[in-house]
Computed example of a mutant assay.
Amino acid sequence: MTAPSVPPDEPDPSSRRSTSKPAPPSPQTRQARPAGPARVSASSGKGRPGRPLGQITADCTSTHRAWLQPVREAYLKSGLTMSQLGSRLHISKSKISELMSGRMYPRWEVLYPLAVELSIPYSPLYRLWANAALETHNKSPAWVEGSAARVTVTTRPTAPPLDYKAFRDLTQDGYREYASVFLPYEGCDTALDHAYDQLWLSWPNALASPDARRYAWKVVRATIMSRTPHVDGRPEFLHAAFETEVLQKLTDEDAAMKQLHETLALLKAMSRLPHPQFDVIVLHRLCGMPIETVSDLMGAPLATVRSDERHATRFLDIALTTEPDSEGNHP
């Protein structure tokens, strides 16, 4: 019997390709693909609470920064976002951002509720805000008073912490002696009041620092130096030469002129000392404080103060016996 013929339009079944799927390779023969980087979902990470604060604008004055920096620190500690803070205060997020960066100088009616929400003592904040408005932002007293008159005080004034008050009582005389070297009498009290207000606002930071005395000294020194005239980056305090105790006791005119000339040369040389050595010499030589008292006031180790005094004395001895150098370290 012959096999049935295949229709001419169909291929031979023996030559047809199988349409079934090939069997998957066994695990032994399957080649492992190199592992690629794991895909991470964009929403899997946890976002930080709130938008991080940018830097304060470069043209923000020191008196403006005196109250702005503590406000920024209080905001960061609160854990609130700008949107949340704005929602609570009914202030736009963009306005809060401008305030925090120093691009906008706010009215007190804007700053006061912010202080209450962030638990900032508003008495020292108001004094620093008003001072900066008058001194550096060309605001009139009428603007300051009008801005405050529209505020309804909803909380009792916060009393200064007891440890802060005790610290002020212990340090204000020494700080005033240092300030009197650079500022007139009235300017000393004003500068110290502003420095202590700034210290009150940042008092928790001072207590959390390695040494509250050192923290406070930096605040006080920066406040005094911001009000001291500078020439070529060096503090100008030559007027102190006319107020030295030695000069006041001299009755001979020639001796007084010689002493004045020597004191002026000393002050010029002192202005070239680095910051720590400069402060030690001012407190020790011009203010007449013992080295131990200088150490306590600056919050610096006694050994460090003694070392600074030795290095500064050596520098001054050389500077006063040689031709003055136009270069030097700026305090």
Rank of each mutant, 00 (worst) to 15 (best):
D189P: 00
Y215R: 06
E253H: 10
G146T: 07
T313F: 02
T63M: 11
K249S: 05
S26N: 08
R127E: 06
H230T: 12
P4S: 15
A212P: 00
Y196N: 05
Y215G: 00
R72G: 00
W143Q: 15
R39D: 04
A38M: 14
H311T: 12
V219D: 04
Q55Y: 09
Y178S: 01
L80E: 04
G299D: 05
T251N: 13
L134N: 01
P301I: 09
G233F: 06
P324D: 07
L125F: 01
Q277T: 06
T293R: 15
V153T: 08
E243G: 03
A23V: 13
F182S: 02
T263F: 04
G328Q: 06
L162R: 13
W67K: 01
L273M: 08
P331Y: 10
V151N: 02
R176D: 04
A256C: 06
D173F: 06
S41R: 12
L80A: 03
L170V: 07
P49G: 09
E309R: 11
Q28R: 15
L134C: 01
L118E: 01
V219C: 08
E309S: 09
L118H: 02
D211T: 06
H275Q: 15
P184I: 08
R72N: 04
P161W: 04
Y175N: 13
R127P: 00
G288F: 11
T321C: 12
A66D: 06
R285D: 11
D252H: 10
S62H: 12
Q198A: 10
M257K: 13
V219S: 09
T263Y: 04
H239T: 15
S5H: 07
G233C: 05
E243C: 05
P8T: 12
V280T: 13
Q277D: 06
R48P: 02
W200I: 10
H194M: 15
P24G: 11
M1T: 11
M298I: 08
E135C: 07
H230F: 11
R176G: 02
A130C: 04
P121E: 07
V280R: 05
L283K: 01
R150W: 03
A303M: 07
A312F: 01
R234D: 02
S97L: 10
A269C: 05
A38S: 13
V144F: 03
P13G: 05
E243N: 09
G146W: 10
T154Y: 01
E177M: 12
T321F: 04
A216L: 12
H64Q: 15
M298L: 13
R51Y: 08
A240C: 03
S326G: 14
P7W: 10
M270K: 05
G50F: 03
R272T: 10
L80G: 00
V144L: 09
A142D: 11
G328T: 11
T263M: 15
S43A: 14
S94Y: 04
T293D: 14
A240F: 09
L99F: 06
E243P: 00
L114N: 02
S271F: 03
S202H: 02
D254L: 14
A206W: 00
D197L: 09
L199A: 09
W67L: 02
T19C: 09
I318N: 07
R17H: 07
A195G: 03
L128C: 01
L302P: 00
K165R: 14
D254V: 15
A312G: 08
D325P: 00
W200R: 14
T228D: 03
G54Y: 01
Q84F: 04
C60K: 04
